[in-house]
Amino acid sequence: MVTIPIEIQILFAASLFLLGLIGLLVRRNIIFMLMSIEVMFNSAGLVFIIAGSRWGQTDGQVMFIFILAVAAAEVSVGLALILQMFHHYKTLDADELSKLRDSKNDS
């Protein structure tokens, strides 16, 4: 089986990570933001898999499972929050969420 050189693997993981980050920056809808965060988590997991395979240890994969578990927990709480947000604000646009800010008229 042809082994892909380690640099390419890291590059791939990094690009995946960057995609997630850009997705987060560009997207206004909260749900898509959550999705891009998931992408970033998975890319981090991917790095662990790569490291695990490189060093021939299973720690990488164990770590990946932890990451998945945590990401799942985080998403579930996130979706609960988004539900509440939609219920309260009737919108999913992230920029609507800006009532907490430095108000203009501070003396």
Binding site: L24, L25, A94, D95, L97, S98, L100, D102, D106
Partner: peptide, 17 residues
């Protein structure tokens, strides 16, 4: 500086980046 604190999440992520 307080102009930057306009409470938008995406600005915060931009700052992080």
């Amino acid at each position: 500086l307080s102009l930057m604190q306009n409470g938008k999440v995406r600005w915060a992520v931009m700052a992080l980046a």
